[in-house]
Design a protein around this nucleic acid. Sequence first.
DNA 1: ACCTGAACACCGTTCAAGT
DNA 2: ACCTGAACACCGTTCAAGT
Lengths: 189, 189
Amino acid sequence: MSITDTREIIMATARKMVQTRGYNGLSFRELAKEVGIKSASIHYHFPTKGDLGAALARRYTEDGMAYLNGLRAESDDLGTWMKGYTDIFRAALLNDNRMCLCGIMAAEFDDLPPEVRVEVDAFTDLNVQWLSGVLDACRPQLSAEEQTRQAMAIYAAIEGAQLVARGRDDISVFDATVQAYQSAGLLPG
Amino acid sequence: MSITDTREIIMATARKMVQTRGYNGLSFRELAKEVGIKSASIHYHFPTKGDLGAALARRYTEDGMAYLNGLRAESDDLGTWMKGYTDIFRAALLNDNRMCLCGIMAAEFDDLPPEVRVEVDAFTDLNVQWLSGVLDACRPQLSAEEQTRQAMAIYAAIEGAQLVARGRDDISVFDATVQAYQSAGLLPG
DNA sequence: ACCTGAACACCGTTCAAGT
DNA sequence: ACCTGAACACCGTTCAAGT
């Protein structure tokens, strides 16, 4: 086992925990037990909880953007793009009623150390940027400001749909809500 | 000071703390310090943290519904109703970037004791019910199911707008997002 | 390079004891 | 009726010590 392996196992395990219980709900002792080391050893890889949280958010953003950019590269269909987008959030709910890592952390805003806040912000920015790109492809007549505003609204609405559906532990709430967004024309396609 | 007074002070103080830091972020010791008693004394009024959380959510729901029902009684104007509705969430952000008590708790779903979950669910139900009533007044041609679905979508979208705006600590994000919802026709009026 | 046990100040909770 | 101090098992963090 090299350095990287243990570090990766810690991150994968912690990511699941945060998506389920939140940043505050993440316990170093519980995490260590699951990984099979002592809690003090976690601090060797991530000096503070904030370091771990920031690393998790950064990786989560990287993975998400790789998926989304692949989606745009592989298809020219607006419907495929938007279904691919909403499916990220749907998949989290399907996966043990988990939440978007940065969505759940946004709710804990006041408890987050600055280095984590920065990464949560970056996730939001990149989501809005990607959605703006999609809007530019399908609604080029809109100004850049209007595209950004609509992209922000789409992102916020999807996060809200996930939050509420999760609170009900009912994925059909998510599906029905996304469909209502589509009917209203909030989502393109 | 009667029983009720201390109890009320505890609830008012705890409510602010939960709207800022969440259920997990609420500390009995910190709460006690602010109230001016010892943490063990909190347990006299609320045996467990779950009891306190449930009482907070129930009171929050009661207060909100009293406001919303007053709104519908005092005016016949759809715009006034919807502005009154979104203003609840806007006011929380204006008040030290706080969140809807039940919105922040919904994100902590997995950490909530059952008695708190029940109250968070009730809040959602009553919001959807109130919004359905508004939709029935302005879009009577819709089926009850469709009204409920749209009401759920409105509630989820507003919660999401608050969540994202709070993460940015920027109320203009909330305002722009709500306006985008209105332009799309997701919000009536 | 990586891990550990022990200590620190925190946490919710319990309970016998005070008034 | 209401409050308290002390104890319990938890928490993140630090650090000297191990290999």
